[in-house]
Every structure is written in structure tokens, then in C-alpha cells.
Simulated scan of single mutants.
Amino acid sequence: MTGAVGGGLRRLGVIGCGLMGAGLAELGARSGFDVVVAVSSDRSLRAGRERVLASLDRSVAKGRIGAEDRDAAVGRLSFTDTLGELADRELIIESVTESHPVKAKVFAALDAVLPKDHDVVLATNTSSLAVAGLAASVRREDLVVGTHFFNPVGTMPLVELISSPRTAPEAAARAERFLAEGLGKRVVHAPDRPGFVVNALLVPFMMSAITMLESGHATAEDIDAGMTQGCGHPMGPLALSDFTGLDTLAAVAQGLFEQSDDARYRPPRLLLDLVTAGHLGRKSGRGFYEYA
């Protein structure tokens, strides 16, 4: 593949191939980028490749893309368990576990294998962590940005782009061109503050709905109906919590509470009890609702 694809870039690196990483890798390959996906082990490599290929096959089966498009995307994808194979990338998105220590360790390891004079834009895909804190793990803090993609990556149109106080304007501009022109996303600029824009509004709303249910103020069905049929939301806050994963939601809320000391983010006891019981929402078959 030759020439620029989107935003002047054509070589994309993705670190991690879980739900979000796989979605990013697939979207990048379908958008015409040469994508290298780096994972931590051979087992993760096999699982990640299978996840991406299965998703592409589903898109063909549903008529969203043709078989030729699927084959072209597969041809642009490669997988590795060696970070050094990302050294020639022009933009790298880290999408591992939502944990500052884990992400910082990955960034430090990546920094060690990149050329000292590199100008690679490094993005951490995060829903709640401070970008400036993660940028401190690398030499070129000015090249670090944050991205907050939404699940599923391929169909949700929005992405938040976060610049830390140390992010160079050119690095942020390159990232925005990649997101908007390369991936076709609507970009919202967010400050490097707890919750950015979306979760600063959404998480307190979801915590309030859970507290309302916990107190017996209303049933789950009535709370969600109030927001879908009364306010036009596509999904009620409790159904959305189940879709997100109650363990993920609790972790994000707790992290935001610890960063901000804002009681609006504090996870209610009901949420924590459901997580402890293993009722994690759709993925476990039970949360605020039961699922087949």
C-alpha cells in the first residue's frame, strides 16, 4: 500500500486486542490503514486475530461489507507479540486494561523500543485516566494524546480527543486528522480532567439512576422508560449500565471519584454488591435485568 490514507498517515499501530483494541484494528484496516497489532503473548495473539476475523466475517454475513473488502482488510492486518515491530508506525493507539499502572508500564516499554528521535503520535485509549500522568512514562510527552472511543468502535460515530497541558498542538492536530479524515469520526475535544466530557455527564447520571433504584424510589423498568419514552434517550441508564458491564462501570466510577473527590461519581452499594455477586450485566446474563 502506498501513499497517505487519512490525515497524512498510513501506518497504524494498536496495542491490545481485547474488545476495544480489536475494534480499532478492524476499523483501521477497513479504512485503508496498514495495521500492526501488538499483544502480550502468543495466546493473546491467536485470540485477538480470531476476534477480528470473526467480526469481519459477521460484517460480510450481514451485508455490511463485501467479501473483497473483507479480504482487503485482512491483507492490511498483521499481529505480533513484540513491541519493537511498532517502531515504524506513524500513530500508535494503546488499548489495554483501564489501569494507570498497566498502561504506564506499556508506554514505558514502547518508549524503550522507539527511535530516540521519533515523532510517532502516541494515543492512550481511555475513558477516565489522566493523560498527563500516562504521558510522564515516555520521553516525548508532547506527542501523547488521549482518545476515548465508544463501543462498538466501528459503528459509534463519536470519539473524544484529549490533550494534556504538555501535548504539542501539531500532535493533537495530526491525531484529529487521523480520527476525522482517516476513520470518519466526529471528534469532540475534551480537557484532561476526570470524565472528560461524556463521562463527566454520563457517569453521575447512571449513578443517580442506580441510587434511585436502590432507595426504592422507582423500579428499573420505570426508571428506564422515563428516560427512553419521556426524554427520548435510545437506552435507559440501567439498561445502558448492563450493556457497559457493571464491573467496568464500577471501576470507571470509582476511578473518577478517587481523582475528583466528587460524590456524584461514588459507586452506590447496590452496584458494588451486584459486581461482587458476579452479576455483571449482559455479559454474565444478569445485572439490573436478566438476559437469555
Rank of each mutant, 00 (worst) to 15 (best):
R286A: 10
G281P: 07
V113W: 02
A239K: 15
R177D: 10
L19C: 06
G48M: 10
G66C: 08
D34F: 05
G232H: 07
E214Y: 15
G8E: 08
V36M: 05
S163I: 12
E170W: 03
P115V: 07
G133L: 05
M20Y: 06
M206P: 13
K185F: 11
L12I: 09
G28F: 01
F149W: 12
C17S: 12
P237E: 09
M227H: 10
G278Y: 00
L179R: 02
D111F: 10
L274E: 12
V121M: 06
G245L: 03
D111K: 09
L77I: 10
L27D: 01
R89K: 11
V96M: 00
G23C: 00
S127Y: 01
T211L: 15
A171N: 02
L158N: 11
T124W: 08
I65W: 11
A220M: 12
L56M: 01
I223T: 00
M1G: 15
V188D: 06
G182F: 08
D81W: 15
P165H: 03
A292T: 03
G28I: 04
G63H: 07
S78L: 14
A239Y: 14
F33N: 04
R89I: 08
Y289T: 09
P115I: 00
L83H: 05
L12E: 05
R76P: 09
T82M: 12
S127I: 05
T124H: 07
F149C: 05
M206F: 10
H279T: 03
M156D: 07
L53M: 14
V5A: 02
A132W: 05
A67D: 06
P268Q: 10
R139K: 05
T80P: 08
A253R: 12
A168Q: 03
A22E: 03
L272W: 09
R49P: 01
V144A: 11
D119E: 14
K283M: 11
H233K: 12
A4D: 13
A72G: 00
L280V: 01
A47H: 13
G48E: 02
T2S: 15
V52G: 01
A292H: 00
L86N: 10
M1Q: 13
P194Q: 11
D117K: 03
L256V: 08
R43C: 03
A277E: 01
N199T: 02
R58D: 13
I15E: 08
L122C: 01
L86W: 08
V37H: 04
R140G: 09
A239P: 15
R10G: 12
A277F: 02
V131M: 02
A175L: 01
D119V: 10
G32M: 06
D142L: 07
V198N: 09
Q229P: 12
V35T: 03
L213V: 14
P101F: 00
